[in-house]
């Protein structure tokens, strides 16, 4: 039998990590759920502050056409803006690939309606009869 001498007793600090690990996992889950991995397709624009149709958001995202306040047409934040003609080409290819392509127009609320109308005409001429127009739900 081994007795530990009183002066040299080994003290081991045990930190209870269970609660902290619980909280950290909860935080990870929160950030994973709220992360938007499709941000590349969504440029920073001030969408019209409207309730929209209160539709469920579980549908396929499709093609995003962003129109910023200056009237630039942006298909991807990692690419440079495109012209209306380039957009029309892209849409024609999309219609060939998919019979009913899903298209979302994300136009800045301060953008001129002229550029928006050009995009709408390009959609119509390419055979897209309906488009989703993104709105920002007012808080």
């Amino acid at each position: 039998m081994r007795f530990s001498p009183k002066g040299k007793r080994e003290r081991r600090l045990v930190v209870e990590l269970t609660s902290m690990v619980d909280i950290v996992f909860l935080l990870i889950i929160f950030f994973m759920v709220t992360s938007d991995f499709a941000r590349d397709a969504r440029a920073e624009v001030d969408l019209p502050l409207l309730q929209g149709e209160r539709a469920e958001q579980s549908e396929e995202a499709g093609l995003f056409i962003n129109i910023d306040a200056e009237g630039n047409i942006i298909l991807s934040t990692s690419e440079s803006p495109v012209t209306v003609e380039q957009l029309a080409d892209r849409l024609r290819k999309l219609v060939i690939q998919e019979t009913t392509p899903k298209v979302t127009v994300r136009a800045d609320r301060n953008a001129s309606i002229i550029r928006f109308n050009e995009v709408i005409r390009a959609l119509n001429e390419s055979g897209v009869s309906s488009a989703r127009i993104a709105t920002e739900v007012p808080r």
Partner: peptide, 11 residues
């Protein structure tokens, strides 16, 4: 990101 919704008019 702010919550987004949509309008779907016929074109």
């Amino acid at each position: 990101a702010s919550p987004e919704d949509r309008l779907t008019p016929t074109i």
